[in-house]
Design a protein around this nucleic acid. Structure first.
Length: 582
DNA sequence: GTGCCGACTTAGCAAACACATG
DNA sequence: CATGTGTTTGCTAAGTCGGCAC
């Protein structure tokens, strides 16, 4: 459809005109995700293989032979022995409770104290296994690789409408011990083995329905074309549903991704109005409206998440904007020469700490003081607000607007601005890429995408530094050689020595360039110590901005996106020209 | 409104892999 | 060719948000 393709090229939203994809030949009515879906079902975790006889478990110093079920769960713990969390009280308590459920009554009556359990022999056995796997011959490794490829080929793809699509996670999660992030009350609980009887298959009626493993039945086979998943089951820790879905490279995911950025671009058009509106609302007579307006200001300015309520005791204690509590902020009328500073300190998604001191407008500050009046530290800051109220309001301001759109919008617009600001036309490619990474980094910092500093960070920095030192020496040598060659040429005045000068010059230049590249690399790495760029790149930055930037400055797209990322963003690579504006 | 569920996106970490280096 | 290092991929937990029942 040439018309739609042109719309796409111009970056205009075809979505405003129709809700189906320009990639798809056929149109879908509202809510319909596909017409035909065929797949081979999931791959189950390999069955438990009992330990060899010579691997012993000891209870209270004495050898004890465990039943297969109890042994399996014991191996989960043994495999984690080196990990810090097996020392944690909650982890141990949860594990022991669930382990006991798997024991025979005899085992249950004997094994009453986890501290008397000795898993070290089992642990050593697994370590030896890991080691042996590493030492495998090339042929053996090749064989495993081929087996994996076979599995991928057989189960890793499906047919959705007229396309063969890659499946994201076709393997069922194996049983093990649950480890939540942060201080999770359920850490150590047994994540049970998923059986075909737990599995719901979703595919089209007229497709070849995947057969369950011999001797088993599916829980259900359904034909729901209003959803995108192929397989689902209910997980036993939180009771939530898990899905098998398509890879980000698929039409259905790509289209959704595109749509997400188009919504963010629509926000761009009305964000000024919305900002004026919430600034007005700071003065509202209604408490609810004021809270809503201050929360929205945080979401917009600081890219905070919406912050749904969570069930207490079921998950780690983390918050987002609407669920902030009084204890998470401190108000400083004056701090380090700045007025009206709010100090945030709370755990967000994945228990990542958000710590920030932000000067805010006086009205916001005064409102916060008001919201905190007569409250305990553990009380909600925005007691008249939740995500549902906020999102309903946002919906009124713009169709399709929700709290998370602000994160997408601010991330993408920041990238675009930073790229404009930081890219120096005279820079060479590595320096331009450094600029790109810095722009990316600005976004990651905004979104608080942190990572644990790599374990080998210091060492790797030192290695890089010594490389730089070596290169500097090499450069000094090359310069000396050039100098003497020049002197030589002056005396001799023949062609050969002139040529030598030229080649020495080139050598110096080459080394200078290499040195610069290394120094750029060092800067980049140092600045990136605790920052994770991947998440924003993958989820928040309109890929068309990056594609356009690459085109504009002649940077090969491979320098910015690796293979997987290029597959995910194929739609954008295909679509964006160098003049694309977010 | 509130609580709950279902579907989907977003997230950091660890294992696997690829590639450079000695 | 082994080894070490940086990059990529896999894994799955943890969010968002809409819809439904009460």
């Amino acid at each position: 459809c040439a018309f739609l393709k042109k719309l796409k090229r111009n970056g205009d939203s075809a979505l405003n005109i129709c809700t189906w994809s320009v990639w798809e030949e056929e149109r879908y009515p509202e809510g319909i995700k596909w017409k035909f879906l065929e797949h081979k079902g999931p791959v189950f975790a390999p069955p438990y293989e009992p330990l060899p006889e010579n691997v012993k478990f000891y209870y209270d110093g004495k050898v004890m032979k465990l039943s297969t079920k109890a042994e399996e769960v014991a191996t989960f713990f043994a495999k984690m022995l080196d990990h810090e969390y097996t020392t944690k009280e909650i982890f141990r308590k949860n594990f022991f409770k669930d382990w006991r459920k798997e024991m025979t009554s005899e085992e249950k009556s004997t094994i009453t104290n986890l501290s008397k359990c000795d898993f070290t022999h089992m642990s050593q056995y697994f370590k030896a296994q890991t080691e042996a796997r590493k030492q495998m011959s090339k042929e053996e490794k090749q064989k495993i690789k081929e087996e994996n490829e076979r599995l991928l080929k057989e189960y890793g793809y499906c047919v959705m409408d007229n396309h063969k699509e890659r499946i994201a996670n076709f393997k069922i999660e194996p049983p093990g011990l649950f480890r939540g992030r942060g201080n999770h009350p359920k850490m150590g609980m047994l994540k049970r083995r998923i059986m075909p009887e737990d599995i719901i298959i979703n595919c089209s009626k007229d497709s070849k329905i995947p057969p369950p493993p011999p001797g088993h039945k599916w829980k259900e086979v359904r034909h729901d074309n209003k959803v995108t998943w192929l397989v689902s089951w209910t997980e036993n820790i939180q009771g939530s549903i898990k899905y098998i879905m398509l890879n980000p490279s698929s039409r259905i995911k790509g289209e959704k991704d595109w749509q997400k950025y188009e919504t963010a671009r629509r926000l761009k058009k009305c964000v000024d109005k919305i900002r004026n509106q919430y600034r007005e609302d700071w003065k509202s007579k209604e408490m609810k409206v004021r809270q809503r307006a201050v929360a929205l200001y945080f979401i917009d300015k600081l890219a905070l998440r919406a912050g749904n309520e969570k069930e207490e005791g079921e998950t780690a204690d983390t918050v987002g904007c609407c669920s902030l509590r009084v204890e998470h902020i401190k108000l400083h009328p004056e701090l380090d020469g700045q007025e009206y500073v709010v100090e945030f300190d709370f755990l967000g998604k994945d228990s990542i700490r958000y710590y920030n001191k932000v000067p805010v407008e006086k009205r916001v500050f005064k409102n916060l003081q008001l919201f905190m009046e007569n409250k305990q530290p553990e009380d909600d800051l925005f007691d008249r607000l939740n995500t549902s109220i906020l999102n309903k309001h946002l919906q009124d301001l713009m169709e399709g607007l929700t709290a998370k759109v602000f994160r997408t919008y601010n991330a993408s617009i920041t990238l675009q601005q930073q790229l404009k600001e930081l890219t120096n036309p005279d820079d060479n490619i590595p320096a331009k890429i450094l600029s790109y990474n810095r722009a990316n980094r600005a976004v990651a910092i905004l979104c608080n995408h942190q990572r644990a500093p790599p374990k080998t960070f210091e060492k790797s920095m030192m290695n890089l530094q010594s490389k730089i030192d070596a290169k500097k020496e090499q450069l000094a040598d090359a310069r000396r050689e050039l100098k003497s060659a020049k002197a030589d040429a002056k005396v001799r005045r023949d062609e050969k020595s002139k040529k030598t000068v030229e080649s020495k010059k080139k050598a110096v230049q080459r080394i200078e360039e290499q040195l610069m590249k290394l120094e750029v690399q060092a800067t980049d790495r140092e600045e990136n110590k605790q920052i994770a760029l991947g998440t924003s790149k993958l989820n928040y930055l309109d890929p068309r901005i990056s594609v356009a930037w690459c085109k504009k400055w002649g940077i090969p797209i491979e320098k910015i996106y690796n293979k997987t990322q290029r597959e995910k963003f194929a739609w954008a690579i295909d679509m964006a020209e160098e003049d694309y504006e977010f």
